[in-house]
Structures are given as C-alpha cells and as structure tokens.
C-alpha cells in the first residue's frame, strides 16, 4: 500500500481523470518545484474507479481556471493547518492564450512561432474552444 502523508498547508487537486495528472503536473510547472509535491496516479476512487491526485505542500498561487482546460471535473482543496478551508471548482475561461496548442497542421501557428496560441470558448457545456486563426475545435478532456 502506497502511503503519502497529508499536508499541513497547501493545495490538493483531487478528482483528476486518471492519466491527466501528469499533464497537469507539468502544466503547473511542478517538475521544477523546490517544495514537497506528490503526484499520485491511478488511486482507487469510489466514484471514478481510478483517479489522479496532486498534493502541493506550499501556498502556491496559480490560475485554477487553467486546470479546467485539462480536466473540468477536478476539485481544488485549499489546506490550512491540515484542514480543508476552501474547495474550488475551476470554471472554463472565456479566452486562453498559450495554454492550448492548435493541433491543425495547416494552422498558421504551426509555422509562425512568434504568434500566441489564442483560443476562445464556444460551448461551455461541451468544453469546446476554437482556435482564433483556423477555427479548429479543441475539446477539453478529449484533445
């Protein structure tokens, strides 16, 4: 049995769809962290079967909406003195810049690298974003 101690002050990102934790880990730059961080993959979950969890032993400040772009169903728990003091469900932002990469090989962003990758939300329910340049659809959690 894998044991990871609870954290005293920091953040726990829970209910990450199994397999997406590592992407979130890198997106948050946690591979460069100089504080305690744990990425737990394929943890048993009553509701999800398997899930990923990220525990961060530090009061980091990051944009939680960005997490929704990887998995809109995550829960962000803010921990103080070993207690959850706040739960945040991130919402999809209206516009994102340089987080999603356009997968269309014919998009101008594939060759002109100085251009920011800009996507705008077109369907919140389906989690669909559209590339500002080529209209390619990016679906959160699928692409």
């Amino acid at each position: 049995m894998l044991t990871i101690t609870s954290i005293k002050n920091g953040i726990v990102i829970d209910h990450i769809h199994a397999g997406l934790g590592i992407r979130m880990f890198y997106q948050l730059g946690l591979d460069k962290a100089d504080y305690s961080v744990a990425l737990i993959m394929n943890a048993a979950s009553t509701h999800m079967g398997r899930k990923d969890i990220i525990k961060i032993e530090n009061n980091v400040d990051f944009d939680v909406t960005m997490l929704a772009l990887i998995d809109p169903n995550v829960t962000v728990n803010v921990i103080e003195d070993e207690h959850i003091v706040r739960k945040v469900k991130p919402e999809l932002p209206e516009r994102v810049e340089d987080i999603i990469k356009c997968k269309n090989p014919r998009c101008i962003t594939s060759v002109e690298k100085y251009i920011p990758q800009v996507f705008t939300l077109v369907n919140r329910e389906l989690g669909q974003y559209r590339c500002q340049y080529c209209d390619e659809i990016y679906t959160v959690g699928k692409d």
Partner: peptide, 10 residues
C-alpha cells in the same frame, strides 16, 4: 492568399 489557415488574420 496563403496555404496556412489564419495567415491573413496575422
């Protein structure tokens, strides 16, 4: 006219 999509927007 450009072969890459979105070039005129740039």
């Amino acid at each position: 006219r450009h072969p890459k999509e979105g070039a005129p927007r740039i």
